[in-house]
Every structure is written in C-alpha cells, then in structure tokens.
C-alpha cells in the first residue's frame, strides 16, 4: 500500500495526541485556583454576608458590624484615581499612537512607561508619601492616595489604549487625511470611535488593580478605622483592601468569618466592576464599522 501508516507516522500521531492533552490540561488547570479561591471564600465568608454587613459600620473594636465605610472609601479612591489617570493616560496614548515620530523623545517616553509598570507597589507608596503627602502638602488624604494609585495604573491605561488605537487599520487614517481632515479630526471621528472598546479594557484593568492595591494607600490616605465618613477629597478614608488586612492580621479576636466576608466582598466588587465594563465594552464593540 502506498498510503499505509509508517512507524514514523505512528510516532508523530502519538506525539500529536500527547501534546494536545498536555496543553489542554494546563489550560484546565488554570481554572482550578480560581475555583478554589472562590469556593473557600464563599464557604468561609458566605455566612458573614448579609445586607446589614454592607451598610453598617464596624463595631466592637472591628470584631463585629459591617464594611460600609470601607466600601464607600474604596469607591472614592477609585473614582478620584480614574478621573486623573484616564484623561492623562488616554491623552498620552493618543500622542504616542497618532502624533509621535520614532525619535529619542518617543523612545524615552516608552522606556519610562515600561519602567513605571515595573515599579513595585510599595515603592509607589513611598513615592506617594514623599511627593503628594509631604512635598505637595496634600497630607494623608483621599486625594494623595488616589494620585498615588493613578500614577500606578497609568502604564496599563497608556499601553492598552495605545494598542487599541494602533489596531485601527492605517488605510482608514490615510483615507481621512486625504479628504483634508487634520490629525485631530481623524482621531476624533475615526480612531477613537473604533478603539473605544480596547481603551475601556485598559481602564477595567486599571480599576481592578486600584480596588485591590493596599500598600500605596496605606501611607497616603487610608486609615485603619475612622469614626466618620469621608466628605471631601481632603479627608482620610477607610478602604476595602486595607480593611481586609486589618481584620485579618491586626484584630486578634475577630471571628474567622469576618476577614473572609470582607475578602469575598472585595472580590465581588472587582467582579461586578469587570462585568459592568464588559457589558459596556461589548456594546461599544458592536459599533465598530469594519
């Protein structure tokens, strides 16, 4: 027979199966830790959750009561951080994607972004303390903490936004320019509407990180416990991530369910934010016109 299997074919087939299985197992394995974390959190923290848990203050030296001030505090931090990092990051990304030529300045900026992304969060924390709290005299406040978070999330927002804009095919820009549109008109009418979903992905990543970070806000504006709610950006605030750290390690007689409850709420918060953004993103993507 001309077409029958040779020993070499057999070996190739066997390897093919082997590697397929191997790669699939690795992919499936990835899901396990996520499931494990979620199930432990739900099992141990679930009993602590109730409507009251979300909307009451911690009581009895933080061994009972809820997480309301931390929840609100985290929203403050995220909102203020985003209102700084999004305009700044997206503008920088527009410059890098649409205006910058490949020269030394661009290379320096790119290098700075990569390095900024690699800075450990505890270093950001010290930078925030030195720069915003002390040097600019903002004191320990929501503003100082948010600015620190903003600096930390900037690289993510810049890099993903720039990539989203670069994904808009070049011929669209050329068509627009050839019709007499300026660069800015082209960006506004062609590039931005078609990269919105990608830019939003960057913002989502930024938000998830902002919600979870503890170190950068510890020195710059987050408090262990506050008897009042923040009213302006000049106030200090409690925050979910720090609150988790506190009830898990600093309050010896807290019931076991409490830290797990806080952790579960924190994860739920991130997941909710992500889900909302994904829905929004899908709707934006449907507007894409090619």
């Amino acid at each position: 027979m001309k077409f029958s299997q040779t020993p070499l074919d057999q070996k190739n087939r066997r390897n093919e199966k082997l590697f397929r299985m191997l790669f699939m197992m690795m992919a499936v394995l990835l899901v396990l830790p996520v499931l494990a974390v979620l199930s432990v959190l739900i099992y141990k923290g679930g009993p602590a959750l109730s409507w009251d848990f979300f909307i009451t203050n911690p009581t009895q030296g933080m061994t009972a009561g809820g997480i309301w001030p931390a929840l609100v505090g985290t929203m403050w931090l995220v909102a203020v951080a985003l209102s700084v990092s999004v305009p700044l990051g997206v503008s920088a990304a527009i410059y890098l994607s649409e205006y910058a030529k490949d020269n030394w300045l661009t290379r320096v900026i790119n290098l700075a972004i990569i390095n900024l992304a690699g800075v450990p969060s505890i270093v950001h924390a010290l930078f925030g303390l030195g720069a915003f709290v002390l040097f600019f005299g903002l004191g320990k406040s929501i503003l100082a903490a948010s600015l620190t978070l903003a600096v930390m999330t900037l690289p993510e927002i810049i890099v993903t936004s720039r990539e989203a804009m670069q994904a808009v095919p070049r011929p669209f820009r050329e068509a627009s320019w050839s019709l007499g549109a300026t660069r800015w008109q082209t960006i506004r009418h062609i590039v931005l509407p078609n990269s919105g979903s990608g830019i939003l992905t960057g913002i989502i990543l930024g938000v998830s990180r902002t919600v979870g970070e503890t170190a950068p806000i510890m020195f710059t504006g987050a408090a262990f416990f506050l008897p009042y709610m923040p009213e302006t950006v000049w106030d200090q605030t409690m925050a979910m991530s720090l609150h988790l750290f506190v009830v898990a390690t600093q309050v010896p007689d807290a019931p076991e369910a409490l830290p797990f409850g806080v952790a579960l709420s924190l994860i739920a918060m991130v997941l909710t934010l992500n889900t909302l953004s994904i829905i929004f993103r899908t709707r934006l993507r449907r507007k894409k016109k090619w």
Binding site: P171, F172, E174, A175, L179, G180, I190
Partner: peptide
C-alpha cells in the same frame, strides 16, 4: 495642505471607505 487635499481628490488602489455609514 488641507485646501490642497480638498481641491485635489485622491482615489486609492484598494477601496478605502471610512468605518462609518
């Protein structure tokens, strides 16, 4: 340049309509 582009229209090798209606 903007006036030049308006008075002198360009049609490209591959049709390149903008991603709009």
């Amino acid at each position: 340049l903007i006036q030049v582009r308006k008075k002198i229209g360009m049609v490209f090798q591959r049709p390149n309509p903008l991603p709009l209606t």
